[in-house]
Each structure stands twice: as C-alpha cells, then as structure tokens.
Simulated scan of single mutants.
Amino acid sequence: MTEDQVYLEPKKGAAVELVIKRSRFIGHLEIARSTEDARKFIRTISKEYANATHNCWAYRVGVDLLREHYSDAGEPSGTAGKPILGEIARAGLTNTAIVVTRHFGGVKLGVRGLIEAYSLSAKEAIKAAGTVKRIKSRKIKIEVPYDKQSLIYSRFRSMGVEESMWEAHYGERVLLLGHIPLSLVKEAEEMLISYAGQGWVVRWEWVIDR
C-alpha cells in the first residue's frame, strides 16, 4: 500500500492540562470526521467551560478535500487558533478538533507567550491522543431487502471489508453504511450495479461528509 492511500488521524480523544505563568491551559482533542462533528465538539467544550477566560479552537477534517477553520475566541489575533491549527498540520493529522481552554492566572503572557502556550497545549494533546494510519476510503450507503443483507456482507467480506465495519439501520428495508477502500471502489461499483439489476440492491450511493 502506497503512502497516498493512507492518512493520519488521532487514535483517541484526549485532554491535557498545563500551567504556564499561573494561567491554566486545558487542551481537549477529539476525532472529528466532518465539520459538523468538529463544531459539535467545540460547542460542547465551550459550554462545559463557559466560565473559562477563553476557549480557543481549531479543526482540520477531510481526506482528499481538507477543511480547516480556527478561532482566537477573544485572544489577540493570530495568537491562539492559528497556532493550534499549525500543530495539527505539523503532525500531519486530519479529522482532528482541538479546543484549548484558558483560565487566566493574573500574569499576561504577551503575543509570543500566548502563541507558545497554545501551541504547546495542542502539541501535548496530540501526543496524549496518539496517531493511527487509516486507509483512504469512500463512504457508501446501500439499501437492501432483509433477505439480501447476508449476501452483501458475504460479498464485501470476500473483498476484505468485514461485517463489523458496517453500520446497519432497520426499517422497511436494511440501510447499510460503510467505508470502501479506494482500491476497491471500482469493483464495488460493478458488483452493486449488477446486484441492482437483479433486484438484490434497492439503491446505493456514495456519501460525502460535510
């Protein structure tokens, strides 16, 4: 497998705490595979630490199409959100959201001090979370009759996509959500077109996370 077929994301969520010149910094990191996931995490932390002096944040999500955003949340421009994002990028990560909470301790850090403090908080959160290589894939949604679910599982299992990698929702039919490695996309499409023609698949489509 070549390097262009994999990407890095955090292994798990993490939180670290640092005290720098009497200010308390808490770096919160979470895996976020869409901008919606990232914003939800940011809202949750900001609400939980609503009494903090600042909740500065940055996120970087997506694989082939990266989406990035950051906020200084009241700190001087360029001293918080951008350094946090810089650490995410420096680690080569995607699907990552970080919020750094600051409780002011009475000593001003200055521009350089703030940049270093927010950078270090993000860096330590990334270190605590660890990183893992993921295979690039495309998200797919497949709707099938109940009696064809096992057939779909079996066919994809023969391609290397295990049953545990699927998320199933049961209604009038079975809705399967999964991720197909890029190297298998063409084979999957050919199989699904064939199955749809035989009535074994009601409909299917590739899904783009926003």
Rank of each mutant, 00 (worst) to 15 (best):
E190Y: 06
S164M: 07
R134A: 03
T79D: 00
I180Y: 10
E167I: 12
K12L: 03
W204E: 04
G160C: 08
I142M: 11
V201M: 13
W166A: 11
K148T: 14
I180F: 10
K148Q: 15
S34Q: 03
N51I: 10
R134D: 00
E9M: 15
H28S: 05
Y118H: 07
K82D: 04
L182P: 03
I26F: 02
V202L: 10
R112K: 13
N55S: 04
L66R: 11
K82H: 14
Y170M: 07
Y153R: 12
W206L: 07
N51A: 12
T96M: 02
S121W: 01
L175P: 02
G78L: 02
R112V: 11
I135A: 09
V144S: 11
H103N: 12
R60C: 08
G62H: 01
N55R: 02
E163Q: 11
T131V: 15
T35I: 08
G160T: 11
I180P: 13
D147G: 04
R67G: 00
A129Q: 03
R39Q: 13
E17F: 07
M191L: 15
S77V: 02
G113V: 02
R102F: 08
V111R: 10
S23G: 02
V174T: 14
A196K: 15
E87P: 01
G197S: 12
V202M: 07
P145A: 07
S194C: 09
I20G: 00
D209N: 13
G130C: 11
E36C: 03
K148N: 14
H169W: 06
K12E: 14
S150M: 08
Q149T: 13
M165Q: 15
V161N: 05
K123S: 13
P76Y: 00
L93T: 09
L93E: 07
A80P: 00
Q5Y: 10
L182D: 12
K123M: 08
K82T: 11
P181M: 04
P10Q: 04
A38H: 01
